[in-house]
Simulated assay, not measured.
Amino acid sequence: MPQVWAVVPAAGRGTRFGGEVPKQYLDVAGQPVLAHTLDALLAHPAVAGAVLALAADDPWWPGWHEHAGKPLLTCTGGDSRAASVLAALAALPDAVRGDDFVLVHDAARPNLAAGDLEQLLERGRADPVGAILAAPVRDTLKRAGDDGGIDATEPRQRLWRALTPQLFRRLQLTRALQAAAAAGIEVTDEAMALEHQGLRPLLVEGREDNFKVTTAADLARFEFELARRGGEHP
């Protein structure tokens, strides 16, 4: 399987989590969440290395130049996820061509399963646009009114929760993110930028436990999952 590079936007301050330390640097089993994320991502033999987009003058960054025996590059991220991803795409090694696929993965999504990443790489690179990991919506969805009452029950058929990694070609993703920024569109994931170009990325079903650490409960859940598996990733 040809190798790919990964982009990890890690410039967020994690304001929803609370506290001074950004969530990607919180300690779990003696390592920051970010280290666990990189463990899961770089363990795959097809992932050659990663570029991390960091906040300017990030005081928590450990200064790593490699992880799991693979190179880590850094750049300064932006005020938004899209700006950070664009910065990281520009900072990729010159050997990564415009039509090469690149993974984009959340810094605080440490519970990525090896089998899911394998499926994403295999199926995504066979698609003309690329693909994302996602999970079907299984809960009943309610639309709330202004007063907090239920206005309607929304059909959940064909609805999916977007996860990461997401896999797209370097140049195509760069142009899509640039076009969204120029149009004043705030994209919340990379697939959304491609969608605004009229493209249809593939959905690859991933595990429900590929969650993002956003709250203290999420952090406790990851601690539990890690302890249950004896420190090994799924």
Rank of each mutant, 00 (worst) to 15 (best):
G49I: 03
V96T: 11
A95I: 06
G198E: 02
M192K: 06
V137A: 06
T74N: 07
E186R: 15
G77P: 03
A88K: 06
P128R: 15
A135D: 08
A11G: 14
Q172M: 09
I132S: 05
R161A: 10
H233L: 10
D139L: 00
R169A: 05
D94V: 15
L117E: 00
L194A: 01
A181T: 01
D218A: 04
L52W: 02
D209V: 07
W60A: 13
V8R: 02
D100H: 15
A55C: 03
R138A: 13
R143W: 08
L163R: 12
G49H: 02
V85E: 08
L194H: 04
V187W: 04
L173E: 05
G14C: 10
V51Y: 01
A113Y: 14
A162T: 15
H65V: 09
E154G: 04
G145S: 12
P62R: 09
S84W: 03
V137L: 06
K212T: 14
A91C: 12
T188S: 14
A114R: 13
L73T: 00
G78N: 05
F101K: 00
D146V: 03
P9C: 12
R207S: 13
P62D: 09
A131K: 01
G148A: 00
H196V: 02
W64A: 07
V104F: 00
A176F: 03
A56M: 07
G14H: 10
A53R: 04
V204A: 03
L203V: 14
Q166L: 08
M192V: 03
S80R: 15
A216L: 11
V204I: 15
G98N: 13
A227E: 10
Q178R: 13
V7T: 03
V85W: 06
K212Q: 13
A56C: 08
G148P: 01
L199H: 03
L117G: 01
F211V: 09
P71K: 08
P9T: 08
D39T: 13
W5S: 02
G145K: 11
Q197N: 06
R200H: 11
P110H: 09
G19H: 10
L112D: 07
S80G: 04
P9E: 13
D147M: 07
G14E: 10
A216S: 11
